[in-house]
Design a protein around this nucleic acid. Structure first.
Lengths: 342, 342
DNA sequence: TCCCATCGTGACAGCGCTAACATACTCGAC
DNA sequence: GTCGAGTATGTTAGCGCTGTCACGATGGGA
């Protein structure tokens, strides 16, 4: 049945050439071809030349699935993101992709993990591909999922928020500290009725936490109703601002969990003729490009989205290469960008 | 040497369980486990139960690289994008990912193909993974690369622009027609000195083409210097607007190849006190969310970014399943969204 | 009663590659 | 000339899964 029984080793037309076809044409054997391609220094220059010639002549492209199976190295890095339709996460994917590509590996992307259930399913599927490492945006909460990742037996990075108890590595910044710092900043600007507006994901919750702690330290009470948004959009930011002013007329500052919401609020203020920062200060988080282009320009927290992705990939690659990674926790920090809106 | 020589088939700790381990625990053989997982209707209910129990007990996750090798189906779809840090492409990735995930396959993402050379290298690497289908944003120009894809022997989709001579499938809209339609729209609004501003990629070039054709039909000359931007950002849009007004003071309309540039121009006009659309009309393409939130709201071309990704994946999946795809060309159209800026 | 279709299961081989060991050959030291 | 070390290449045996065929059991129709 097998090809090896047939007299000729020439492949039928339409089939892709295999490593043996290359070897035959180059007058050598499969293993030498493999070495010529992966460890050229182990092969005589003349042999290498013949092999490369044969590769070119046949248009040979190694089957990486077979390679992965035999070598137990897939040369794939998996990355899991809540959604890609969010430019800060897109930047992280970008950074991750750049580092992965530079190292000659490939990126397997999993998307859609705001629910723990989907996250688990998605990760199971990804683990099946036996990636050399896995990165996940967010801290993995479900015990079962953490166990799944641990058992995958490869380096794991949880990225975008810090935790003292990572599965393996963490790369990000403290969302809590960022929330705290911005709130202190607003207090420092003389604001006394500061509201927080955000969604319900973990990162927003951490920022809200930091906000609450900073208020407590300053002896202040929350400056408005607890406004939660269901989706992250400019429109949601507008609506949230209106709801806030209605529910808490005394509010003098609004800190939004993300710039998209803050920008929406800024636009709404302009249309309603509400002075910013006169009547109310507006602050965001993310430092989107649009934030600095509006007027008043948005005061925000700059966050290393691209670097988180890039650094995570680099650390994972180092781990794969067997290099010791100094610390399990990589804090990339953040920066308050004071502009006109607060 | 091999595992089969050892007396016991129980795996050493740390190793992942294989299909044979599951089979042993379920009291059956590997092939039955494979069938129980992939074609459950082919296996007796009782056997299936035992297999699933064993799978759960061992935490077995099939090795998809081995599966791909044996079955010649990788269950991977590859997608290649110029950059992901551009929200319209991110939407396309999103749509593609949704369809791929829904079908139980996985997404291999390649990023960074504004240069033909990188595109070729990236695609070579992706083809090595033997995806079941490949989608590429843009029309593949290089003959060598087209040949590479053709020889991959799987369905191929070129997406985001139409062409009469696709490698296999095309899904998108006519960038030329969109440029044409918006230009006609501006002419219809009484504009006579219409400028076009965009980058140098293929899509911008097609839009510029349509613009030039529409001007010709209306007996008009280009309304300004030929402004090319090097990067796509709000800042670039601002600078382009200033450059345009300086180079061609008579200009009464500016059509930007993408909304990001148009939004930048709109912001610049506001700051410079230039009346829009009084002094100059501004139009874009893409229909970003911010476009409708600004005032004046941006007149633009709505483009089916998400649907292009989703539809491309669906068509590719249909092809893989052996269904005939009605037409090689899928035109998803576009829509002029007339708002206040033009 | 026999036959053949159908169902459930299994044996075997192979997908295309590489790790590990084995072998041949070269060259300089003694 | 012999030996050992180093270099270049080859042989063998899988990696973990599934396609293909084969086989036994069951059951309904002639």
């Amino acid at each position: 049945m097998g090809r090896s029984i047939t007299a000729s080793r020439v492949r039928s037309t339409g089939d892709r050439p295999r490593i043996e076809d290359v070897a035959a044409l180059a007058g050598t054997t499969a293993i030498t071809v493999s070495r010529a391609l992966h460890r050229p220094e182990k092969v005589a220059a003349e042999t290498r030349r013949k092999v490369l010639e044969a590769v070119a002549a046949l248009g040979y492209i190694p089957n990486l699935a077979a390679s992965a199976l035999a070598s137990r190295r897939s040369r794939i890095l998996a990355l899991v993101v809540p959604t890609i339709a969010n430019s800060v996460f897109a930047d992280t994917v970008h950074g991750f992709s750049d580092a992965v590509t530079a190292a000659g590996l490939q990126l397997l992307l999993g998307q859609g993990t705001y629910a723990p259930e989907t996250e688990h399913r998605l990760l199971t599927a990804l683990v099946g591909r036996r990636p050399d490492a896995i990165a996940v945006i967010g801290i993995v909460r479900r015990t079962e999922t953490r166990e799944l990742l641990r058992r995958a037996g490869v380096p794991i990075a949880e990225i975008w928020d810090l935790t003292a108890t990572p599965i393996d590595l963490v790369v990000g910044f403290s969302n809590r500290a960022a929330g705290h710092a911005m709130t202190r900043f607003l207090v420092g600007r003389g604001r006394r009725h500061i509201a927080f507006v955000g969604g319900d994901d973990d990162r927003a919750a951490a920022r809200r936490d930091g906000y609450a702690a900073a208020l407590g330290e300053s002896g202040l009470a929350p400056g408005g109703a607890d406004i939660r948004v269901a989706d992250i959009s400019y429109g949601a930011g507008r609506r949230a601002l209106r709801a806030l002013l209605e529910a808490a007329p005394a509010v003098d500052a609004a800190f939004f969990a993300t710039d998209v919401l803050a920008v929406g609020a800024l636009l709404e203020c302009r249309e309603m003729g509400i002075a910013v920062p006169g009547r109310i200060a507006i602050a965001g988080l993310g430092d989107l490009e649009i934030a600095r282009e509006l007027s008043p320009a948005l005061t925000t927290v700059r966050v290393p989205s691209y670097d988180i992705g890039r650094r995570a990939a680099e650390l994972l690659l180092a781990r794969i290469a067997g290099d010791a990674v100094a610390s399990a926790v990589t804090d990339l920090g953040f920066e308050i960008i004071a502009r006109e809106s607060a």
